[in-house]
Design a protein around this nucleic acid. Sequence first.
DNA 1: CTTCTACAGTAAAACGTTTTAGCGAGCCCT
DNA 2: AGGGCTCGCTAAAACGTTTTACTGTAGAAG
Lengths: 351, 351
Amino acid sequence: MDETGNPGPEIRLPRRATVKDVARLAGVSAGTVSNALSGKRRVDDATRGRIEAAIAELGYIPNIAARGVRTGRANTIALFSSMPTAVAAGPSKLGFMMEIAASAAMTALNRNVALVLVPPIAGPAEALRNVSFDGALLVEPAEDDPFLALLSSRAIPTVVIGEPPVAAGRHVELHYGATARLLVRHMLETGARAFPLMLGQSRRQSHAAFERVYLEEMAAAGLAPRVIRVDETGGEAAAAGAIRAELAAAPGLDGVLVPVDALATGVMAGLRAAGRRVPQDVRVATRYDGIRARTETPPLTAVDLHLDRVSEIATEALLDLIEGAPPAEIPLPPLPLLVPRASTLATPAEG
Amino acid sequence: MDETGNPGPEIRLPRRATVKDVARLAGVSAGTVSNALSGKRRVDDATRGRIEAAIAELGYIPNIAARGVRTGRANTIALFSSMPTAVAAGPSKLGFMMEIAASAAMTALNRNVALVLVPPIAGPAEALRNVSFDGALLVEPAEDDPFLALLSSRAIPTVVIGEPPVAAGRHVELHYGATARLLVRHMLETGARAFPLMLGQSRRQSHAAFERVYLEEMAAAGLAPRVIRVDETGGEAAAAGAIRAELAAAPGLDGVLVPVDALATGVMAGLRAAGRRVPQDVRVATRYDGIRARTETPPLTAVDLHLDRVSEIATEALLDLIEGAPPAEIPLPPLPLLVPRASTLATPAEG
DNA sequence: CTTCTACAGTAAAACGTTTTAGCGAGCCCT
DNA sequence: AGGGCTCGCTAAAACGTTTTACTGTAGAAG
């Protein structure tokens, strides 16, 4: 790992070694050095040996920016978080995004590509002006997502995580329908009979899928459905208010399905304030098994979406797309897995 | 946000507009466009107006790589995670790193700089070959950290988060001593009298600080100290084994202080296996208030390190350093805050 | 009426790579 | 022996910026 102490290597180079320095030392031209490095054209073994020796001696590291100018590639992909800032800033979305980010960064670096994080801080145009990237991962865009609009208008290779709102390019399935069915059926199995579905107001595919599946399953079970829409930007307080209003209107309520975890936290607060016990009086379940679900009291039943695998698949697909690989089917991630927790589990004594 | 429908804007440009295109359209030279954009030299107001009109019309976006070649700046900073892979891969370190990443990404983009994530996947040299950046954030490096060695040998501007092992450049204080004191005193206050300190074996400043403060405080309290070192790469299993051995040797043990949260999880498992109740028989506390601490049963007393603020300070300092701002004192982040949880709280009935 | 300076602009060099076009040597095939 | 190939290499162009060195104009100062 460290150099065997050759004499005086701590002389500061006045400037970083370039491909020309390597070429001179190896007695070849710059083009040959480039070819030796990239493997794009054959280089004689003896020559390659001299080049590698020169590289080692000079500690040469290619200038990525210069390479990018010539090749037009940045060797970088961007992860956009497109959620409304109010939600994105909180620890909930942070967890979701960051689980994806960590896995994507690993996968990307394995293929010699760096991952840059683009927070939802400035407008999408602002972001383009400051970072350069060959493609983008976009997490669960809403229907009018400005990032999605920008990316597709600029024809930037993009892979969406989750179902895209418009028939965009490529996406990785997040199994919205299966996730919804898993949760609705679990509510039914735990004995809930009068449980509304609480959704955000933004136009998202996951909301639509939840609503569709919920209505289907309730109809099949012969139960009366009830869908509550809450303004996500209102955060937990809005959800708490909404559930209290609902309790007043429907005192027999015995469960709530709240896919958005930030809203679920609000619902829990609202239930506590109304003196309802979870799970004895009301069962609660949410979608993303993140820090919010796990640290509620009691912890919330949720779903393992296999985000690490989803993110890996998305990253691989994006890199293939960028490299112009023949378009292949994007593999399906594993099916979602229910993680039952105390918020829906009947107490042992009840059995 | 969207263009007012001027006719036929959906024509695909054969190539991205360049500064020359803008210059031609505005009737000036490329240099003038550059000056107008950067503000480095004065440009007549009328001229600037024409340039801005041209930019808008062409949808011009500067090529960051090309700019980088000329200026030598990448407008990017890197976040290195240097932890041993075994630990880094788990969700625990992930949380720690990702809390920092999210906050750093926001701060950086506010100053028109992108943040790239460098996972500990390849060697540090490998990383340098694939991403270009102007400076680096390094999180809690160990004494022989290869990233730290590389960064300082290459004279890359670096800000360390936490106390650096060698007198490196600049760092943001993580208040190791204060954190340790907070925890040791809390253990004492909750009535623990025979509680060992369990540390990893890697040479880290935070370990050293914990050991020093622990020994001090135990001496002051007239109690017998006991420090256990566990190989971190052994993960939770190693910690579980270590605590069981300790219980056998010292049955009177009534607490454990385990700064590394992955080890704390192992200790909890070990205690459960040995039939000891937490907190009634044994009190347990850890350092980082992440997902591990919060989701243990019972949840672990931990410390709020204000990572978001720490990360913000570090990022600002790094950017100042890169931009050659006059070296100013790096502000201190807020003092750590104890988050007492059930793992050390006496049951109400006990009072 | 000069001379000096400030101003606002231009042309071209420079940054470090990759890629293109071309070249000479050796070999194989007739 | 000569034509055509392949091989391994070189020189130079190209990528899109920023920066340098310069130029002409206009006004101020003497």
